[in-house]
Every structure is written in structure tokens, then in C-alpha cells.
Amino acid sequence: MERFGDWIIIIAAAGIMIWWLLRRFDHWLHEPPGSRLRKLALAGGVEQDDTVILLQEHGYEVLTGKHRIPLGVILDDGPVKSTYPYFDYLVSKEDKYYLVKSERSGQPTDWTTNGLRDKFLLFILLFPDCEGIVIVEFDSQQLRTVRFKVGDGE
């Protein structure tokens, strides 16, 4: 009789696990677009600094700041090595989301199409619901927006 009882428990546990996995898959499948960004926007606070003031002066609502994205890199079947690309702020303007990167003096932005692609495409691929990336240039107190469009660009 003990074997019969063991099988009932195993089948019940497997059924609960399958039910839970199906619910998670269904929730993920029907999750509205942009919900990942909305969750991120609710995640953190913002410290008032020069960048935040500049963004607000240009009509952006600063939602959250300073996010690191954990990313593992494997080279030739070696161990997983961690890297953390980051963006400075998540902002919204006219119901559209933008990621913000501050230009650093030691790492100037290459404004060619290849330079912009190499530096910023990762973020658009990770957050496809973003309208673009706002780059803050401290020297000129200017904001520039980078958007990517799949196709010829013509």
C-alpha cells in the first residue's frame, strides 16, 4: 500500500507543478507590451541632480534612475563571466518611454551610425518598448535622442 500512496503524492506534486508552469506561461503570454518598463519605473527613486533638472527642463518626467542589467558572457565554453551594462534614468514624455545615458568625459560618444549602433543597440534590444535613448551632453547642456529603425533607413 505504501507504494500506491507514494505514487499518488508524486502525481499530485507533478500536477501542481504543471498547473503552476502553465499559469506562469499564460501570464507571460498575455502580459501587455511595455509592462516590463512600467515595472521598472515603479522600482526605484530618483535623486535630484543636474541631469534630472536638465531632463525636467526639456519636458521629460524622470521615473527612476541608475539601473544595472546583469548579463552573463560565455567565451568558448568557458565559465560565465558577468558584465553589467547600465543606463542612468528611465524617463517618459508624451506617454513614450526613453532610456537615458549620460555622456562621460572619458568616454565620448561616437556619433557615426556604427558608433551609435555599437554603443546603444543593446539597450533597445533589451527594452524594445522604449521609443529611444536620450543622451545627456553635460558640456553643451544638450539632449540628443537616438532611435533605431529596422530597414534601409531611407
Rank of each mutant, 00 (worst) to 15 (best):
R3L: 02
D6S: 08
I8D: 01
I9Q: 02
I10C: 02
I11E: 03
I11T: 04
A12P: 01
A12E: 00
A12Q: 01
A12C: 02
A12N: 02
A12F: 06
A13S: 11
A14S: 03
G15D: 03
G15C: 05
I16G: 04
M17I: 07
M17P: 00
W20P: 00
L21I: 08
L21A: 05
L22P: 00
L22T: 07
R24H: 09
R24C: 07
F25P: 01
H27C: 04
H27S: 11
H30A: 02
R36Y: 02
L37A: 04
L37P: 09
K39S: 03
L40V: 09
A41G: 03
L42T: 14
G44D: 08
G45V: 03
V46M: 04
D50Y: 13
T51P: 01
I53Y: 03
L54A: 10
L54T: 13
L54D: 10
L55V: 12
Q56W: 02
E57V: 09
H58G: 05
Y60W: 06
Y60S: 09
E61P: 00
V62S: 00
R68L: 12
R68V: 10
I69R: 13
P70N: 10
G72Q: 04
I74A: 10
L75N: 14
D76G: 04
D77L: 11
D77W: 10
D77P: 01
G78R: 15
P79V: 15
P79Y: 06
K81Q: 12
S82V: 05
Y84P: 00
Y84E: 13
P85E: 08
F87W: 14
V91F: 14
S92K: 12
E94C: 03
E94R: 08
E94T: 01
K96V: 03
Y97N: 02
Y98T: 02
L99R: 08
V100I: 09
K101E: 05
S105W: 11
G106I: 05
P108E: 15
P108N: 11
T109Y: 12
T109R: 07
T112L: 13
T112F: 06
T113D: 15
T113W: 06
T113H: 13
T113N: 12
N114D: 13
L116S: 13
R117A: 10
D118M: 09
K119E: 14
L121M: 11
L121T: 13
F123E: 10
I124K: 15
L125Q: 15
L126V: 11
L126N: 08
D129H: 14
E131Q: 13
G132M: 10
I133A: 08
E137C: 12
F138H: 15
D139A: 15
D139Y: 07
D139V: 14
Q141P: 01
Q142G: 00
R144A: 07
T145C: 15
V150H: 08
G151P: 09
G153C: 09
E154P: 06
